[in-house]
Design a protein around this nucleic acid. Structure first.
Ligand SMILES: [Zn+2]
Ligand SMILES: [Zn+2]
Ligand SMILES: [Zn+2]
Ligand SMILES: [Zn+2]
Lengths: 128, 128
DNA sequence: CCCGCTATTGATAATCGTTGTCAAAAGCCT
DNA sequence: AGGCTTTTGACAACGATTATCAATAGCGGG
């Protein structure tokens, strides 16, 4: 069975305090700065677990890094992400979901999934 | 100025013969098998150049690998990709383009871009 | 056609994110 | 508390990508 360790909770908490996506390395550094002696491998494992359990969303950055974010809604959704500060909004659109499924079907593709992310500059960063 | 080398042409050709996305490593292996003595670093460089010039599309795989594909149309488009064999169809959808732009704008985000990829099993792989 | 300049190549080392290893530490029972 | 297992974390290993740099080879001029 899965055990309750302060490490997993620390990762969960640290992730929850972030307004946007972070890498495992960044989160680890941030935890260490806060005085936590948590190990890097543990942060990687905890984030992977959270993603599997649906408590965190993950995506690959442009450079191929894995980024994570605390997942607010448990429903299927996508993200609008600030390219500059990482701030993230959760977005939904049934029309787009249908379009993705229909497009796959029209070409004879089955078991369709999709990756949809919108990047921009948030109001604060647009102003700066 | 940019020089014309057989290596760059070989990468361009090899990429053009592929029906879907490939990694730099795969393309390099394939070129070597065909008897070409081209170096790995050169394949990486050539692919990066092609992507910058708009002659190739690129995306990050689930595992964080960079994948490339010869770009047929120069217009903005997306891809429907077979998860099993890599076969790829180019797809377009103005509705979705508009949705992405409108969604960003509604949240006050500017300079919006997006990543939209659909993955599934192509007809051949669905049958298997 | 040959020279010379400089961009390109490619073997290799270095880097970076991530995962595997395994003994020590800590949960979770009774 | 005692015992059984899971989890941890320092460290090594790994795979993809990039940097290094001497040797190679376009390309333009003579
Ligand atoms: Zn921002
Ligand atoms: Zn969706
Ligand atoms: Zn297929
Ligand atoms: Zn688009």
């Amino acid at each position: 069975m899965k055990r309750n360790t302060w490490q997993r909770q620390a990762v969960r908490d640290a992730l929850g305090e972030r307004p946007g996506f972070v890498s495992a390395q960044e989160l680890h550094a941030s935890l260490r700065e806060s005085g936590s002696p948590i190990g890097l491998a543990t942060v990687y494992r905890a984030l992977a677990d959270l993603a599997v359990e649906g408590d965190a969303d993950s995506l690959q950055s442009d450079e191929g890094e894995a980024l994570y974010r605390a997942c607010a809604s448990s429903r299927h959704h996508h993200h609008l992400i600030c390219r500059s500060c990482g701030r993230t909004e959760e977005i939904e659109a049934d029309d787009v979901e249908e379009w993705a499924a229909a497009t796959a079907a029209r070409h004879g593709y089955t078991e369709a999934r999709h990756i949809i992310d919108v990047f921009g500059l948030c109001p604060a960063c647009s102003a700066g």
